[in-house]
């Protein structure tokens, strides 16, 4: 009993907010929308499928924020990656397409990381600039045309397929969260990321190669955005320059609500997953409530504001 008490008292309220919020919203929708199909397996599966790309992006952002950096460009990376994969697969095999999509994400992430880590530029400004740069490149890549993805193996693996009756997007979510959590919590690299975000000078003094950590976290962010681009391309069976464009605020909100500190040094991959699911559940439930579109936006905004305010307020005590 004492050990339970000790463990509970050690829990950070900021990191609990997302679970409490998730449960509260789930119960509210479950009660008010019980006749509207909210609790059906189909609808609950929809929520996971719809949030899979955002969850993968959120995992990358947890690493960046935890190291005291931020990536605003991941939405643009999603579009470039999805288009790269789709364009390459028009002429070449699926493997080349995946390589192109993921490769584009990794390279753009590394580009951001290079400028931040070795040219000592602030990540906020670097990624603000590259967000515009790569949004423009996404538009010019295909002259604003959408590119169909006709490779059924690809769309099965990254979109509509199933393995032992489990949708592939659910599998990607599980794999992403598992790897992310493992690296973040149980490796030396994860500890270095947190140390860098908590106090870069102290980290440097203790022998951590801080620039290298910064380079890696932004590269990871790019890689996750690249994978999210592949998931979008698989799910929509097409790539379009607008993919990922509207995910920036949703993903940042999911990560912050999920217990990751904006200024670094603290975070949670599992919390980001719950935060992402919470955002998806909000979208889903508010539509099923048949609210007007503007009312959906207002309610969603207020709930996110409340969740973020509660978690950040506690941190500042």
């Amino acid at each position: 009993m004492n050990s339970v008490k000790t463990r509970l008292s050690g829990l950070d309220f900021q990191q609990l907010v997302v679970y409490i919020g998730f449960l509260a919203i789930f119960l509210f929708f479950a009660l008010t929308l019980q006749d509207d199909g909210f609790l059906t397996q189909r609808n609950l599966t929809n929520i996971i499928l719809q949030t899979a790309p955002a969850t993968i992006m959120a995992i990358g952002l947890v690493f960046a924020l935890s190291a005291g950096e931020i990536d605003l460009s991941f939405g643009s990376i999603v579009a470039v990656s999805a288009l790269s994969a789709a364009v390459v697969m028009q002429e070449h095999s699926m493997a080349f397409g995946i390589f192109a999509g993921l490769g584009a994400g990794v390279m753009i992430g590394a580009f951001n990381g290079l400028l931040v880590a070795y040219f000592k530029l602030p990540s906020f400004l670097v990624t603000l600039a590259t967000m515009g740069l790569f949004a423009g490149i996404a538009r010019s890549m295909t002259n604003l045309r959408s590119i169909p993805v006709l490779n059924e193996t690809f769309t099965g693996i990254f979109g509509s397929g199933k393995l032992f009756s489990v949708p592939s997007l659910v599998i990607w979510t599980i794999i992403g969260v598992a790897i992310g959590h493992l690296v973040y919590r149980h490796t030396k690299f994860g500890a270095h990321v947190l140390a860098t975000g908590d106090n870069p000078r102290a980290a440097q003094v203790s022998g951590i190669k801080v620039p290298r950590i910064r380079f890696y976290v932004l590269t990871i962010c790019g890689a996750c955005a690249g994978l999210a681009g592949l998931l979008y391309a698989g799910r929509l069976q097409a790539a379009r320059y607008t993919l990922g464009e509207s995910d920036l605020m949703t993903v940042i909100a999911a990560v912050i609500v999920g217990g990751t500190a904006l200024k670094g040094g603290k975070g949670s991959v599992f919390g980001a997953l719950i935060g992402s699911l919470m955002m998806g559940m909000l979208n889903n439930g508010l539509i099923l409530m048949n609210l007007r579109v503007s009312d959906q936006m207002i309610v969603r905004g207020l709930i996110i504001l409340l969740a973020v305010a509660v978690s950040l307020r506690d941190k500042n005590r």
Partner: peptide
């Protein structure tokens, strides 16, 4: 957002509508 349109369709189908009126964002996606 083409991805959100896809999600909106999936969510609305849970309510089993007889009719959907929509502007498809583009022919391909």
């Amino acid at each position: 957002d083409a991805a959100k349109q896809r999600s909106d369709i999936e969510t609305a189908l849970v309510k089993k509508p007889s009719i959907i009126l929509s502007l498809p964002l583009d022919p391909v996606t």
